[in-house]
Design a binder for these strands. Structure first.
Length: 606
DNA sequence: GCAAGGTC
């Protein structure tokens, strides 16, 4: 029996070939420069295997010629327009390879990633292969990690492709296209009448169900900063200065109060009896937990915060390093390693490094501790980790590789250990406390300088001890202005609100910058995102239209996501989902088109 | 000249 296996990307076809063949396969070139076909016998199922792959989605969707030109129809008509799906022009060689290989095969086994998009890509592959061989038997290999035992099990116990998941994706594709195109044309055409710089037909005022909530976050934070009014507050500051002149500050349990009269009267009480009594001394071991295994979103946040590289840039570098064989697959939601993961051989590869080699060596002896397990698993890729030692990198490449490697070694190390002392004190009826820390074992911190844990010792206190505070003052402070949005903050917000995916979050941020909705502002060491006049105007405009669901907030995207899950679980058909959602957007479109010219004059767009 | 999702 001849089995044609098709994976979602080149790296996976290669890995599964290595595993299933035990390393004995032949490699054939194809007309696509990215794709090779691997062939070998698989005696376990009495088969001859050909393993190949695609590169993500095979097809793209667009309106037919009748609706493609901007003036060919009313923008509203796009909601009910047909949508055509074609093999993308740069994927023709891949299609041709699939057709040729399918003709020779009895069975087609789909090895795409085990997620919704993977199920849809699987369906695209099936459609192509059936054109070459109508009655080809279709199977789906289900695996959750590229680990020998799992891959063999998947090859020997295939299941069926999940049509519902592919349907959900198809619905999303149609929806995003129609909503995006209709609103983009409407916005652009209305604004073209007001702004000369838009009239040349080159600048598009795009709308997208992900880019607008993303812009919304930037504008929301901007408004918060702009409208901020500082408020005064008061707190009692207590401290004891040692004979050596070191001051131990005690924090007031009430924090700070915004009511000056109350603060003053409490302070008067304290002054009436300003002898402090130690009511409790707590001494206990404490830990600073090592970081979780690295996901794409975390990499981008860290890259922006610690390495000062834009999320898109970090992902591009990680992609390149992955292509060069230095890193594992860089797009993953998984923050837990498979129990069978081979940590030791990967750690071993890092022992030659001049900077962290000694630390890696200590992990091969007795410093190793199994990584923490996060809550996410995309069932397709492990957390990001180095797969080989890279000694000749420079610049940003080096920074990204170093971060990922140190993070991996930190994950495989032990938590940092310390000893904490908390001294609770009562003074004039008010309570205060001071906290001391002694760092005992730095452990993972040795290799992971991105985390800080600094000890500060307290003088000895005993329960029942009384002392005269050297400082007891009512101090005034004021609330400080919230900071502008950083790229790392934005990635966090998008991730939390389900806007975009690990692979697309960085692109959406780039899009709103490219469209001049958002401007990057560098202040000191940090890059902040501030909205442009156009960006503010668009968001304010939509917020002023009196729509019951805002087109610039994350709720609509969340609902789309929920609908997709319902389609996946069979509670709703693809058709129902599309009909409901399109209907909802049509209503909003009618209002938006009517209101848009009015809000243009009322907002910063004017 | 529109989107978002894969992957290169």
């Amino acid at each position: 029996m001849r089995v044609l296996c098709v994976a979602e990307k080149p790296s996976i076809s290669k890995s599964i070939s290595q595993i299933l063949s035990g390393g004995r396969f032949t490699t054939n070139e194809t007309r696509s420069k990215y794709i090779k076909n691997y062939e070998f016998d698989y005696p376990q199922t009495n088969s001859f295997f050909t393993v190949t792959c695609v590169t993500g989605h095979l097809t793209g969707s667009d309106f037919p010629e009748t609706h493609r030109k901007w003036n060919s129809c009313d923008a509203f008509d796009l909601f009910d327009a047909p949508v055509e799906t074609h093999i993308a022009s740069d994927k023709k060689a891949i299609e041709e390879n699939l057709l040729t290989q399918a003709r020779r095969a009895d069975t087609l086994m789909i090895w795409t990633d085990c997620d919704r998009e993977g199920e849809h890509i699987g369906l695209e592959i099936v459609r192509v292969c059936k054109r070459a061989k109508r009655n080809i038997v279709v199977k789906r290999a289900r695996f959750s990690a590229i680990i020998a035992q799992q891959i063999h099990h998947a090859a020997q116990h295939p299941v069926e492709l999940d049509r519902a998941q592919a349907d959900a994706v198809e619905a999303r594709i149609m929806l995003d296209l129609k909503v995006g195109a209709a609103f983009t044309r409407m916005q652009t055409m209305i604004l073209q009448n007001h702004f000369a710089q838009l009239a040349d037909g080159k600048n598009v005022v795009s709308y997208g169900p992900c880019q607008f909530p993303t812009l919304g976050f930037v504008v929301q934070k901007w408004n918060l900063v702009k409208s901020f009014v500082s408020e005064p507050f008061w707190f009692i500051y207590l401290a004891l200065t040692s004979s050596a002149g070191e001051e131990t500050p005690f924090n007031w349990k009430r924090g700070h109060l915004f009511d000056e009269d109350v603060a003053v009267s409490l302070y008067d009480f304290v002054l009436s009896d300003p002898l402090a009594r130690v009511i409790k001394v707590t001494k206990k071991g404490t830990k600073k937990w090592k970081p979780l295994p690295l996901t794409t979103v975390e990499l981008q946040k860290a890259g922006s915060r610690l390495l000062r590289l834009a999320p898109k840039k970090v992902l591009d570098i990680a992609e390149k390093l992955y292509q060069q064989g230095f890193l594992s697959y860089p797009r993953t939601e998984t923050d837990q390693f498979d129990p069978q993961f081979d940590f030791q051989s990967l750690i071993q590869k890092q022992t030659v490094d001049p900077a962290w080699g000694d630390f890696a060596t200590s992990l091969t002896q007795n410093g190793f501790s199994a990584p923490r397990k996060g809550k996410n698993n995309d069932k397709a890729h492990p957390p990001i980790h180095p797969t080989a030692h890279a000694g000749n990198l420079a610049g940003d490449d080096k920074k990204v590789y170093e971060f990922i490697t140190r993070r991996f070694l930190a994950c495989c190390s032990k938590d940092a250990e310390g000893f904490q002392t908390i001294v609770d004190v009562e003074c004039g009826g008010e309570f205060f406390s001071a906290t001391g820390l002694i760092v005992l074992e730095r452990n993972y911190l040795i290799v992971y300088p991105y985390d800080k844990w600094v000890g500060h010792e307290l003088p000895d206190f005993e329960e029942g001890q009384e002392f005269q505070p050297s400082v007891c003052e009512l101090r005034e402070g004021k609330t400080s202005k919230p900071s502008l949005l950083t790229e790392a903050d934005l990635v966090t917000l998008m991730d939390k609100n389900g806007i975009g995916t690990d692979a697309t979050i960085a692109q959406h941020i780039q899009t709103i910058i490219d469209r001049d909705y958002v401007i990057e502002k560098i202040e000191g060491n940090t890059k902040y995102l501030i909205p442009s006049k156009l960006g503010i105007g668009l968001i304010e405009g939509y917020n002023q239209m009196g729509l019951n669901k805002s087109l610039s907030k994350p709720q609509l995207r969340r609902e789309t996501e929920r609908s997709m899950v319902q389609v996946c679980e069979g509670q709703k058909t693809k058709g129902d989902m599309l009909e409901e959602t399109i209907e909802q957007y049509k209503e909003m479109f009618i209002i938006a088109r009517r209101e848009f010219p009015k809000v243009v004059s009322r907002t910063t767009l004017s």
